[in-house]
Design a protein around this nucleic acid. Sequence first.
DNA 1: AAGGTTTACGTAATCGATTTCGGTTTTTGT
DNA 2: ACAAAAACCGAAATCGATTACGTAAACCTT
Lengths: 356, 356
Amino acid sequence: MQKKQITLADLAKELGISTATVSRALKDYPDISEETKRKVLELAKKLHYRPNSIAAGLRKRESRVIGVIIPEIVNHFFSSVIKGIMEVAYEAGYRVMLCQSDESYEKEVKDAETLLANRIDGLMVSIAHETSDFQHFREFQDAGIPIVFFDKVPLVEFENVSKIVVDDFQGAYNSVQHLISMGKRRIAHFRGPLIAYTSRNRLEGYKKALSDSNIPIDENLIFGCQDISLEEGYNYCRQALALDEPCDAIFAVTDMVAMGAMIAARDAGVVIPDQLAIAGFSNWKISALMEPPLTSVDQPSLEMGRLASNLLLKEIQANKKEIEIKYETHVLKTHLMIRGSSDKNAILTTRQILLH
Amino acid sequence: MQKKQITLADLAKELGISTATVSRALKDYPDISEETKRKVLELAKKLHYRPNSIAAGLRKRESRVIGVIIPEIVNHFFSSVIKGIMEVAYEAGYRVMLCQSDESYEKEVKDAETLLANRIDGLMVSIAHETSDFQHFREFQDAGIPIVFFDKVPLVEFENVSKIVVDDFQGAYNSVQHLISMGKRRIAHFRGPLIAYTSRNRLEGYKKALSDSNIPIDENLIFGCQDISLEEGYNYCRQALALDEPCDAIFAVTDMVAMGAMIAARDAGVVIPDQLAIAGFSNWKISALMEPPLTSVDQPSLEMGRLASNLLLKEIQANKKEIEIKYETHVLKTHLMIRGSSDKNAILTTRQILLH
DNA sequence: AAGGTTTACGTAATCGATTTCGGTTTTTGT
DNA sequence: ACAAAAACCGAAATCGATTACGTAAACCTT
């Protein structure tokens, strides 16, 4: 029962004028008399006229839609980024078309193609784990559609794009340095898969912090997670505690892994943070609610989304005005949230912060 | 530097045939010779032809895009629903345009209007707290665009739409009945604002469970949350414990509130679950990771999203074929996840489930 | 009063794909 | 051999808004 939508032509016929005039009246062109504008606006309102932006988009060769491809939605970090993206995009009159790659290369390619077919004005991407070829993004460049990569970005492969990443290295460095300052020396690291640059940078930050404090790096204390799960954190923690020289602190690649470690420590009767200090990465909301609250590295997700949107919109505007685009790379600073899992004295203040 | 995209006309000119033939060749019409099809497909591939679905949409009067309006994205429940929605929609060849109302009526109206202007083929909505007028959705019905409401749905106001809700009443009932079966008698309820039907239904479920067990309802044990926060849970728990006849269990409207209560109990040195049992609602991932793990009512968010998509797609198809649409209302069952915060003996098994 | 400028609109092309009618050939049937 | 039927393809309208260009009338200007 597709009912007919009111069109410019309907208004024009009703008023006995041309569609050109109606269009211009609605857009408040100076060429049109106040009298006519008034009548057009009135009728448009009366008939509930809604402009068809598909048609307008076809004519103007712009859709006012931007595409977003992320690995997954059910993830606090990414959903925060999206919130930031949408805030800025909507303010500027752009809609958001969302795609989820599920960390699959194939899905990512398909998503890119349909977004291209939908003639989006710009694209924001956090690439999937599996992706190592980037041809599907090159097509956007060929079509003159700007791309902004965030969080998971291609490194050398891409030149003419803006990128936004989090300073994983510094975040990890600060976190480990904090553990050292708490008197820990046998600090284990549960790292992520090394295909991910984030994992790699965190590992490097960990190593640098140790060597800067003249603590030798013990490969036995470095455990590699495959799927960054609670289970891995749990099991590696048991292993790390069972070593001849057990660890006295853990820096985990992610809060999920850190929480697995915390549960294992609890089960083993190990006192946190006295016997074992634990620090995570990402600062999930849950982190602050654990017992004890988890020390973690906060990533500025909202800011990342806002910045990505702003960069992209700027490039879209530059494109329209045929101005040369300046591609930027931003490295966002992290914040170390010190809590009870690494610092006994932080417990009270954290709780206080939580409850104002 | 908007570069030119390849169009049907480009292909046609290159091959010396008409756009009509090219179009039909690409769509594999039986009218076109295999030879021509082959040549067209070949050239299309070579030139990286991407169909302009904006143009096709204009002509075919369909966009293959569905709109989604939710109160907020940074929320495990809603992001799960979206995941479910997108899974099904993408499988059927539909894109998703996402909007976030921020619980604001004004934003919701604006979102609805731009989605309408973008000629979406269907709409899914979870309405904002503030919304009590529904004219902006009526316009979709007038335009023959199907709507499916989920989670937060208008009750009596709307007739010709499908709705999907969670059985809050039954979920609350089961939860409270469980607390009773654990030997609790002074069960407090931290309810949500009564404008929300979900809050109201949970309150009713709570009351029914009590009266079915012949436990008198004590209004002093019912506390009203305004913004459903950790702080409210914390404060109400202190109040509930400070009563002349303190409570021995709490059923909270949401896990967030329940966790606030847990922290308060911890601070007060009250033993969970022996002295105070606590149960929440929503079953956030965190719930299972608290110490002790929080008993909670699981809402089938993914299923809700999938079902919403399926219903909407069915209505879109029916619309196209001019078939009468059958509007459905679904009430999804919840699952009570019994954990250590209400049942001592559940502790181990929960942990076991978590770690396989 | 002739020529120039505004004001206020209309005409028609345009964006790119789809689709309705046809219109040629070529093939098939008898 | 001649009509009938396929088989293939093209012209042009269409979707709805935008806009370059044109024009008629009114209004100045000296």
